[in-house]
């Protein structure tokens, strides 16, 4: 565990928790793409299939449980909570799941480190995480509304991406045989897409006068 990895995990965790707490507190999910949040929940569910079979560390297990719990809680709030669900704008959140999920399944089946169920699911989760932000991007472009997407959420997600790449560079030079092309390439694609997200966010912020950052 290096400092980049720990900081990356913490910012990733914070991004999810900030979103969950915000939805819980203001009882609104306006501007948030349910599809992106559902895809993230699928990402964690398919990636952490090893949670009860391969023990890595207490830290690892607890973090996995928190990610699973918080991502499914966000989806529950948007779909089921009697007040929050009214603020969800279904008509704007139109990205089709199949365009994201099917290519990821296909890619995971042909490009993976090992052709086993767990390994293919793990690989699928990496590909899916890389593109799961797309429905959120489409929603953002369509509504041009960034007020409801907190500055913190965007900032923390971006910090997580950047720190994970630094972590990989660090591990590449400090650990023998640390070469993982699949997560690296998927991670770089994800970071580039995030850059697009950040661009719109910044652009709106620049033109749009006031962006309310939560306290």
């Amino acid at each position: 565990m290096n400092i980049f990895r720990l900081a990356g995990d913490m910012t990733h965790l914070a991004s999810v928790l900030v979103l969950l707490l915000k939805i819980h507190t203001i009882k609104s999910c306006a501007g948030i793409s349910l599809k992106t949040q559902e895809l993230y929940a699928i990402v964690f569910a398919t990636r952490y299939l090893d949670i009860f079979t391969d023990f890595i560390s207490l830290y690892n297990t607890i973090m996995k449980l928190i990610f699973l719990g918080s991502s499914f809680s966000i989806v529950w709030y948007i779909r089921q909570h009697k007040i929050v669900r009214r603020s969800y704008d279904k008509d704007q959140d139109t990205f089709r799941y199949v365009f994201i999920v099917l290519p990821c399944i296909f890619l995971a089946l042909i490009i993976n480190e090992k052709f086993t169920f767990k390994e293919v699911m793990w690989t699928f989760s990496l590909y899916l995480e890389a593109v799961a932000i797309l429905p959120q991007l489409v929603l953002l472009q369509r509504t041009r509304n960034i007020d409801n997407l907190t500055g913190q959420y965007v900032f923390l997600l971006g910090a997580y991406r950047a720190l994970y790449i630094l972590n990989w560079i660090y591990r590449y030079f400090t650990e023998p045989h640390y070469i993982h092309w699949i997560p690296w390439i998927a991670g770089i694609v994800q970071t580039l897409l995030y850059g697009d997200f950040f661009y719109y966010y910044f652009h709106s912020w620049k033109n749009n006068k006031k962006l309310q950052l939560p306290a």
């Binding site: 990895r5 995990d9 990733h12 090893d50 391969d54 890595i56 560390s57 690892n60 973090m63 996995k64 990610f67 793990w122 994970y164 972590n167 023998p176 045989h177 640390y178 997560p183």
Partner: peptide, 10 residues
């Protein structure tokens, strides 16, 4: 040294 089994990143 061989790579450890499993994926240790989140």
């Amino acid at each position: 040294k061989e790579q450890p089994q499993g994926h240790d990143e989140l």
